[in-house]
């Protein structure tokens, strides 16, 4: 039996916001694959719950008339990967989502929970970062939107104000039309594992030259990180081996991997440089540029 002290179930977002405001100690529980693990470990921070598991309005994936893709925070990773909107327009996110845990975990774990827990290893994060995703939150004061990279504040810390619920993730059409991407999860096992390094790349090519490159890593710093400086340096380059070399030479400058019992810093750096080249190469390949 889980060590829960109070429990309230919400059927709508507004109800959830009201319940959270009334119970300032309470945290939302969506899929519970994170919250319940912490309760199994008797973590006192999760003893008061507002249950948003069955809030239907958080479970939709839609495309707005301007092409913006809107993914409800309560969408689980199985539904995400099976969504036609996702798999045709932003397959890189499906790749990230499909690398999570195992089938049973993906059947319940939500994308909102994956981002909200602030884990540096969240497999949805690097793909969402290279898609320039924005977060939408709703609280007692109404809606607010911010870029995903601003939502992350530190390890396990996100910019969620009290009473707020993440409602959806938004990806604008200019951030995926003409772009191709790839996500690779480097882990110790082929499934049921936390990434040692997660790497997402996206690119847009114009006449053989880089019109845009985006690179993001998980577990290469306190939060999932974009490689801003590298991306800038690569802008306008010819898409060939020199570009890959430039990226792999520069990428560590954007990141802050560290030593832990799971892996040493120099090992992570080895994987980061290798992946930056290989993952970008595959993203380019998907954009019709094949580098031997």
């Amino acid at each position: 039996m889980f060590d829960i002290d109070s429990y309230h179930k919400a059927d709508t977002v507004d109800e959830a916001i009201a319940l959270l405001s009334k119970n300032p100690d309470a945290v939302p529980i969506a899929g519970g694959t994170d919250v319940l693990v912490r309760l199994h470990g008797h973590n006192p921070d999760y003893r008061h719950l507002v249950d948003i598991h069955d809030v239907a309005e958080l479970k939709n994936i839609t495309m707005e008339p301007d092409g913006t893709i809107v993914i409800g925070s309560g969408v689980n990773f199985t539904d995400l990967a099976q969504s036609a909107i996702v798999s045709t327009n932003i397959p890189v996110l499906a790749e990230g989502g499909s690398s999570i845990g195992g089938p049973q975990v993906r059947n319940v774990a939500t994308i909102g929970g994956n981002i909200s827990n602030g884990a540096p290893s969240a497999d949805a994060a690097p793909p969402l970062l290279v898609l320039n995703a924005h977060i939408e939150l709703k609280g007692p004061e109404g809606f607010r939107r911010l870029p995903l990279h601003d939502f992350y504040q530190g390890p396990g810390q996100v910019d969620r104000k009290s009473g707020e619920i993440m409602t959806c993730l938004r990806i604008g059409s200019t951030d995926y039309k003409g772009w191709s991407g790839h996500y690779y999860k480097y882990a110790m096992r082929g499934a049921m594992d936390i990434a040692t390094i997660g790497c997402a790349a996206a690119c847009k090519i114009d006449g053989g030259r880089v019109a845009g490159i985006r690179l993001a890593f998980g577990v290469a710093g306190p939060t999932p990180l974009r490689c801003w400086r590298t991306e800038e340096k690569a802008q306008g380059s010819v898409a060939d081996q020199t570009l890959l070399d430039l990226v792999s030479d520069s990428v560590l400058g954007d990141l802050r991997p560290r030593d832990s019992w799971r892996a040493s810093k120099d090992f992570r750096e080895q994987i980061i440089t290798t992946l930056s080249e290989r993952v970008l190469k595959e993203a380019l390949n998907r954009n019709g540029v094949s580098i031997p």
Partner: peptide, 23 residues
């Protein structure tokens, strides 16, 4: 094992890597 404290880092099935069917 952390040799300073004697703590076991990975006494669970997520961190102790029993091969899965993928492996």
């Amino acid at each position: 094992v952390d040799s300073d404290s004697g703590r076991i880092y990975n006494n669970n099935l997520l961190d102790y890597k029993v091969p899965t069917i993928m492996d």
